[in-house]
């Protein structure tokens, strides 16, 4: 994993070691203390934590891309996916927790997802949400000025495209089914999956061949 200078919002370019009053090191120490005490008391095990981290790491937008590639290739799967997202992805061996709703982009309608209250996100298919998804600015703005927000991602929608913003909750997680670029009809699923990025599945980008 990279730790580039620019990967954090606590800008600090002088490479000083963590200080005792440093907010980051304070919470790192608190996490360590809680974790060690919970292991000592047998509430959790170090092994269980390691496995949980592996599960967290194993989810990535590649799962979402596989789902979309299948939906583009198999009309019956697509129908099931839009009707009952959990059942559809269970048939691919993926297990969501809670309701999983897939919203379809069409020539007339573009979808984008958000969690205005915090950070709900279909992590089992997309992995960890990007920092901007959790940011106050995205959560606040995308529901009332989605076109302006999408334009910041370089996505300019025509005025006659309807924009639908779906606000996730702890009970319902959304994912966008992007439109298939027409020139990719008939491509094998593996090649189609390569076109589908994380941002296509959030709705801040469209799939391009």
């Amino acid at each position: 994993m990279s730790h580039d200078h620019d990967d954090h919002d606590h800008d600090d370019h002088d490479h000083r070691p963590p200080q005792p009053d440093d907010p980051v090191s304070r919470y790192e120490a608190l996490e360590q203390a809680l974790r060690e005490l919970l292991i000592e008391k047998g509430v959790v095990t170090a092994d269980g934590l390691r496995r949980t981290m592996e599960v967290l790491e194993s989810a990535s937008p590649e799962n979402g891309a596989r789902i979309v590639a299948r939906a583009w290739s198999d009309p019956a799967f697509k129908e099931l996916l839009l009707q009952d997202g959990q059942a559809a992805v269970a048939s691919l061996g993926m297990g969501p927790t809670g309701r999983f709703v897939v919203v379809e982009n069409t020539p007339e309608r573009h979808n984008v997802i958000v969690c205005t209250l915090c950070s709900c996100y279909p992590r089992f298919v997309l992995g960890f949400p990007p920092a901007w998804y959790k940011s106050r600015d995205y959560r606040a703005r995308v529901v009332h000025e989605p076109r302006a927000v999408l334009a910041e991602f370089g996505l300019k929608l025509s005025d006659d495209t309807e924009v639908v913003v779906s606000d996730s909750t702890a009970e319902i997680r959304y994912m966008v089914l992007p439109q298939q670029p027409p020139e990719t009809k008939g491509w094998p699923e593996e090649k189609l999956a390569g076109l589908i990025t994380r941002d296509c599945l959030i709705g801040t980008a469209v799939a391009r061949a």
Binding site: S2, D7, A131, W132, S135, R136
Partner: peptide, 10 residues
Amino acid sequence: GRPLDRQEHD
């Protein structure tokens, strides 16, 4: 809100 900070963050 402000324009988004779209920096990726590992």
